[in-house]
Amino acid sequence: MTRWFLPLVRRDLRLAWQGGGLWMPVVFLLLVASLYPFAVGPDARLLAATGGGMLWIAALLAALLPVERLIAPDRDSGIFDQLLMRGISDEMIALVKLIAHWLGFGPPLMLALLPAAALLKLDGAAIMRLELGLLIGTPALAALGVLTASLVAGLRGAGALAGLLILPLAVPILIFGAGSLHPGSGAALKFLSAISLLLVAITPIAAGAALRAGRE
């Protein structure tokens, strides 16, 4: 397993880097954070009160950006078929995709959060809570992305369909993620962890089943 697991993750990361996929979430988050004060006005108190939630929405949408190129290109070019012929199961392929997708957008997003939070006048404690929430919540977002991409791969209008599928499923992540921004909101953080664990655990199995069912 070690022979092929790491090379596969590395390949996905390299493709994300070559395709500009690693910068997209970062640029997207920074764009939203710099546009937000123009829309609601420069009132520092209002920005600090609402900015955290805004950044959670931006993180959620940023996770959606690469969904179309997560699964479909490898499926269509026959790479999955070749991996299966080498005894690598659909579930393991989905797990590789999940890990590589999270590495490709989770940590860059958490770095981009620092300048974005400064633009929104968030204080140090709020930034810490936001970073902690994202650390727990981004694996769930990555899992949702891989799961949805596997479900819609090969369908017409896959991108739009993926958005429609993900957004309702992402609502709990958003509720508890943004809910964890208030001081002393440990319960929200625990719920967020629970959702994240559940999604990360079921995604390889569910996405693997979707890949298998969709194979022609």
Binding site: S77, G78, D81, M85, R86
Partner: peptide, 15 residues
């Protein structure tokens, strides 16, 4: 035995 498949899919990264 291990099986290798050669079909019409290239399965190589284009770049």
């Amino acid at each position: 035995a291990p099986i290798a498949l050669a079909d019409e899919h290239l399965a190589l990264d284009p770049d």
